[in-house]
Design a protein around this nucleic acid. Structure first.
Lengths: 349, 349
DNA sequence: AAGCTTTGCGATAACCTTTGCGGACACAAA
DNA sequence: TTTGTGTCCGCAAAGGTTATCGCAAAGCTT
């Protein structure tokens, strides 16, 4: 057998019956006699027959494919969310088609285009950092193509979204720093247009106010979330006349870059500078000192996004889910001046 | 327009011409008059027409999709290779369908099955750790379905493969340890059946011999490459009557686990135990102390795998590519007893 | 003017599957 | 003999696209 895949036609020819008989036999249609069914199924099995999804897709007008667009593939956060999406999609018999925008607005638009050309049934997207217009998504809404955003979102209310409790989490970080004894708390955020920047910044400011700390514009830095850009931001902070004694990085990449910058300045964590990241469990425990961080339930976030996707497909429902983060205190924020190595770690919920 | 996608039929009805005319107009067939072409193209553009890939796939018997199976998605190594594959596939106008085996033989077989049902044109695979039979791949060979392995490979000679220069690299690691002054060099490998285990172990032994060091079976440990299993292996090594003064971990996960185990024993890296990993650039520099490691050109490995895939499709060519690794010396192997913090780092090729 | 080529377009088959409809046959009831 | 009732199966359409072939009208040659 040279052909890669057998079709109903092949089976029909082999058995000297019509294609429809073969189809119905395989689908257990009552019109077909038990003997015929058995004969057909036996041959189909031995030939590794499986229905051609292209033909089915054409017929049923569904491809059972979901397009997923992420800023990049190698960041643990996205990889983990994708794993979550994939896990749920698999249960539903769907495949995912992955495209990465490389944080580029242009590439994001192209990816939307390409995935639609591939006839995915809808998209699950995390916005690129550059994205400042929503036209390419508006078009999807018009055509009623299912769309779900996660983490970096837009068009809330009109599109299903999964986000973290960003504002809450950031406020908790500030309170944690305060309780540990830090007083000049800096925040390194990402691009303005991203909701995660806005929300976490808002939480940061709320947290300062709640702790009775003054708001110092110098301490609210910004970067484009790349390693180099984050390190540059941290260098600026450390070069201030009154440098911060604690830093909250908006995500994992930023936190690690900040760590390097602190080391380059010859400073100690946590005694001279406290550090908290917004990151995942795995990396936090690998670095030294272990990083206090707001941990994301990333895999769950992916599964929730997929759930919303299917709600959208099946019930045309649009909904926003907020996943709860946890602040896990580790050594990097153990307190200024005096290092407390033996101090038991605690978790704030 | 309620329908999600316009078809040739829709355009034809709108323009009061036949479907074939529309098709030919869009494909610049010489039989069609320039005026007609322009009219058709204009309408097609305004309607966002794009050919239905399902229909094309059915007709041309090609789906322009590549199946990719990896042990997991969240390990940086795999994510990076996938990014490489995706980058090359995109240039060729192909999409990739990703499935993860979760290191399970059973799931790997299911994934092969599922991806074939989805009618991918071929597979790019990194074997699961448990895989001890090649039947599911033999079937692909019989049906002449393109197949490429990377990193963890089998059926060499009959299937295109991309591997690292494992034996060489491992031998270099041993020599590096030796030159730094370490003498009891341990190796923590993965499951026996994996080529990477075998090859790196072989290199380790060759390296020992080349340095005139004795081969001590106690120092050749094994684990299943999970974090816990690797840590357990390291604990066993450190509990030996004569514990090692240097450890070579077979990959990044193992190296990080070893790091934790060393810390738990209250030992210092590199003064009391030297450490070298087989890992990627990014993580090595994030941990403390920075990890000496054999760095993989992971993204390139992905691109090469994709290249081999298309060679296989276009020219039926089967070929093996070995990518060169680099041993990048950092602090974790700076030498026993005396720490040399200011020592300039060097790179051995 | 008759026969030829060229130009421009339509009809149809093929790729594979499902499904409504209808046909053929056997057998029982009227 | 006719009508009715199953049982089993084939035909054809639909879904979108392209390639092959065919057809008609127009322009050209001799």
């Amino acid at each position: 057998m040279n052909k890669r895949h057998v079709s109903l036609k092949d089976l029909a020819r082999e058995l000297q019956v019509s294609i429809s008989t073969v189809s119905r036999a395989l689908n257990d249609h009552p019109d077909i006699s038990p003997e015929m069914k058995e004969k057909v199924k036996k041959l189909a099995d031995s030939c590794h027959y499986s229905p051609n999804p292209l033909a089915m897709g054409l017929l049923k007008q569904e491809t059972r494919m979901i397009g997923v667009i992420v800023p990049d593939l190698v960041t643990h956060f996205y990889a983990s969310v994708i794993a979550g999406i994939e896990s749920y999609a698999k249960e539903k018999g769907y495949f995912i088609l992955i495209a990465s925008s490389n944080e580029s607005f242009q590439k994001e638009k192209e990816s939307v285009e390409n995935l639609l050309k591939a006839r995915v049934e809808g998209l699950i997207v995390c916005l690129s950092q550059e994205t400042n217009s929503t036209d390419h998504f508006e078009r999807l809404l018009e055509q009623e193509i299912p769309l779900v955003f996660f983490d970096r979102v837009c068009l809330q209310g009109r599109v299903s979204c999964v986000t973290a409790d960003n504002t809450d989490a950031a406020a908790k970080v500030v309170r944690h720093f305060f309780e540990q004894g830090y007083r000049r708390i800096a925040f390194i955020s990402g691009p303005q247009q991203l909701n995660i920047s806005k929300e976490r910044r808002e939480g940061y400011l709320l947290g300062l106010k709640a702790c009775g700390l003054p708001e110092d514009p110098d301490l609210a830095e910004q970067c484009n979330m790349s390693h180099d850009s984050a390190r540059a931001a941290m260098h600026r902070l450390l070069s201030l006349p009154q440098p911060p004694d604690a830093v909250f990085g908006i995500n994992d990449t930023v936190a690690f870059a900040v760590m390097k910058a602190i080391r380059q300045h010859g400073l100690q964590i946590p005694s001279q500078v406290g550090l908290v990241g917004f990151t995942d469990e795995f990396h936090s425990t690998v670095v030294e000192p272990p990083l206090t961080s707001v941990t994301h339930p990333t895999f769950k976030m992916g599964r929730k996004a997929a759930e919303l996707f299917f709600e959208n497909i099946e019930k045309k429902e649009v909904r926003t889910i907020t996943v709860r983060t946890r602040l896990v205190a580790r050594e990097s924020s153990a307190g200024p001046e005096v290092t407390v190595p033996g101090k038991p770690l605690h978790s704030i919920d």
